[in-house]
């Protein structure tokens, strides 16, 4: 079996949305290289509960990098050091015995902290509700193959549609902008003929909603692309701007 590692964790603790937060330091003496990062937090939480302390709250669900529930800043990087990997799929084999790891929640005005590492990302849902859809009622669709779509366009649409809505892009952005998230959906639907009828109203409504939620503007730092677990390209933001500009011109 793999050797165990002694890992020190500095974790942001905050009892509630309005409470004062602080870092607490903990040690996990029996971490294992095969563990995932969230399993390390599980082990720590078991330790805390057994010693009569409150466990650390963090969002998690599928632990396969697809649901987008989890997301913490690990040593200053959203989702941690491994590229294109959500923190549920970060494994401890990337660390060594004696390492210290600093863990914080996403920090953005539009993502208020609920408790410890858990934040409220409902602003994302409201951006989608503003226009991130095709208005087609169930039952009214024509045969699926009536609408040929070039493979290259379909593949690109899939690249953009792969967004898991985790919010790492916001956490990494110096302006706490939600541009990559919003642009990914706009670009996905702009690639496809199904998205065409609502193209203009969609981009206007979504961009306006993004501003209303208190997210900042994009100033091309590209930090979002660097941390995105799905590798969504910053080119989507250029597409969003182009779409927005066209919509402004009517």
């Amino acid at each position: 079996m793999a050797e165990s590692m002694n890992i020190k964790l500095k974790v942001w603790r905050q009892a509630g949305p309005k409470a004062q937060g602080r870092f607490e330091t903990y040690t996990v003496p029996d971490a294992n290289p095969h563990m995932s990062f969230l399993e390390l937090l599980d082990v720590l939480n078991e330790q805390l509960i057994k010693s009569g302390k409150d466990p650390i709250e963090f969002d998690h669900d599928c632990r396969e990098g697809i649901c987008g529930s989890c997301g913490v800043v690990v040593d200053g990087v959203a989702h941690g050091p491994q590229r294109r990997t959500a923190c549920c799929q970060l494994h401890m084999r990337h660390y060594k015995d004696g390492d210290t790891i600093v863990v914080e929640p996403w920090r953005a005005e539009a993502f208020p902290i609920i408790k410890d590492l858990v934040v409220d990302r409902s602003a994302f849902d409201r951006i989608i509700a503003a226009g991130g859809f095709v208005s087609v009622n169930a039952g009214s669709a024509q045969d699926a193959n009536c609408l040929p779509i070039a493979k290259t366009a379909a593949d690109l649409a899939m690249d953009f549609a792969a967004c898991i809505g985790c919010g790492a892009c916001v956490a990494a952005c110096p302006n706490a902008s939600a541009s990559l998230f919003t642009a990914a959906k706009i670009s996905h639907l702009a690639m496809l003929p199904q998205g065409a009828p609502e193209r203009k109203s969609r981009v206007t409504a979504m961009v306006n909603q993004m501003a209303e939620e208190g997210f900042g503007d994009c100033s091309n730092h590209a930090e979002c692309e660097a941390v995105c677990p799905k590798g969504i390209s910053i080119s989507t933001i250029a597409t969003m701007r182009r779409e927005y500009f066209k919509a402004m011109l009517g």
Binding site: A138, A141, A154, A157, H188, L192, Q194
Partner: peptide, 22 residues
């Protein structure tokens, strides 16, 4: 079959052949 029609109409990016069909 209706499900596939519905999902394509929503913009679900299913895999396609080079001819553009599913």
């Amino acid at each position: 079959n209706n499900i596939i029609d519905q999902c394509v109409a929503q913009g679900v990016p299913f895999a396609r052949e080079y001819g553009g069909l599913l």
